[in-house]
Simulated assay, not measured.
Amino acid sequence: MKTQGLWAAHLGMLIWALLVGLSFPAVGLLSEGLPPLLLTALRFAIAALAVLPLVWGAPGLKPSRQGAWLYALMGLCLAGFFGTMFWAAHRTTALSMATLYVSVPLLAYGLGRFLSVEQRALSLLALLALGAFGALGLAWAEADGDLTRMQFGLGEAAFFVGCLASALYPVLSKFGLMRGWLSPHAGVRTLWSLVLGGVLIALLGLIFNHPNAMARMTLSDLALVTYLGLFSSGVTFWLQQRATATLTPAAVTAYGYLVPFVSMLLLFLQAPEVLSPRWLPGSVMVILAILLLLRRDVRMRRDVEVPSRARS
C-alpha cells in the first residue's frame, strides 16, 4: 500500500470520528421510551440494506467456513459492546463509562499483539497513552473537574467487558484479512458485520427491551434512525473496515479519542458559556496524539517504499 493509501485511511478515520461525534445530538432528538437495543438493530438493518446493492457480486460476498465463523465472532463483539453499553448506562455514570472507554485502543494493541497482528512498538504505546490521558482530560473537563462521580461496580465491570469486545472487533478483522479468510472488499466485511451484529443485538433487544415500545416511533424518529443507519452505522463501519486493511487495530481505534473532542466542539456551539481553559490540556493531548500517529505511520511507510524503489 502506497503512502497515498495511508493518507486516505487516516482521512477516512477523521471522517469516522466526525460522524460518530455528530451522531450523539441526533440520538438525543429521538422520542423518549424507545427500546435502545431494538433501535440499534433497526439502524444496522437499514445500513445493511443500503450496503447490499453496492457489494453485490463483489469478491468474497459468500464467506468461507473460516470466514463465516470469524464474521460471527465479529458480530458477537458488536452485540457485546452495544448490549453492555445500554445495560450499564442505567447502572453507572457517563463519566465512568467515558473513562473506561479510553482503554479500547490500548486493549486493541494488547489483543493485536496476542494474535500477531500488531508489532511490538513502544512509540505506538506512548502515543496511545497520550491520547488516553487527553480523552480523560476532556472527560474531567465535562465533569466540571469533579472526579468524585467516578466509581467502579457491576455496571462498570460489564461496560469494561463491552470495551474489550469493541477492541477485539478490528483485531479480528485484521486477523481474518491477513489469513485471507475475509473478503478484501471493505463493503463485504461491513455488510456481514452489520447483518450478524444486528441479528444478535435484536435478540438481546427482544430479551431485555420491550418490543411493544417500538410502536411509539414517529415519522421523525424513523427519519432520524434512517440517517443514523446510513451514516453512523453504514458509512462509519465501511470507513473503519477500509482503514483496517491499511492501519493496525490500535491505530484505527485511537481515533476514538477524537470523538469526545468533536462532542466538545458541538457543546461550545450550543453553549458558548461553558468554554473555559480546563478543556485545553485534554484537547491539545488528543490532537497531538493523532498528529504524531499520522506522522509515525507516514514515516514508516516511506521507509518501506524507498528501499523498494532503489531495488527496482
Rank of each mutant, 00 (worst) to 15 (best):
E273I: 07
V262T: 08
G256Q: 07
W238L: 09
S183V: 09
G57H: 15
F86Y: 02
L127I: 15
S220T: 14
A94S: 14
G21F: 04
F82W: 12
L107D: 00
L128H: 02
G33M: 14
P281I: 15
G28P: 02
Y169L: 13
Q240N: 14
L164Y: 00
V304R: 00
V252N: 08
I207K: 12
H185D: 14
V235C: 09
V259F: 04
S233K: 07
Y101R: 09
A141F: 07
L172Q: 04
T226V: 12
G229W: 05
A157M: 11
A26W: 08
S308K: 07
A89L: 14
L194N: 02
W87T: 02
H210W: 09
G67Q: 08
P63E: 06
R65I: 15
G187P: 01
A50S: 07
G155F: 12
L203V: 12
A17S: 12
G137P: 07
N212S: 13
T244S: 12
F82D: 03
L127K: 10
A289W: 01
R301E: 03
P272W: 06
G67C: 04
S233V: 07
L194C: 01
A94P: 04
Y255H: 14
P260C: 02
L247Q: 00
P260E: 08
L106F: 01
G153L: 13
Q241E: 06
G110E: 01
Y109C: 08
A167E: 00
L204W: 00
A98R: 05
A47G: 09
F86D: 00
F261M: 13
G60F: 11
M97V: 05
F24V: 11
T244A: 15
V51G: 04
T3F: 01
L115T: 14
P53D: 15
F175L: 14
L294D: 08
L39W: 02
L219F: 14
V102F: 06
C77I: 02
G155D: 10
V235T: 02
V262Q: 05
A89D: 03
L200V: 06
V259Q: 03
V55I: 15
G80R: 03
A158T: 01
I201Y: 09
P170T: 14
A50C: 10
L267S: 15
E118R: 15
M214H: 11
T99R: 05
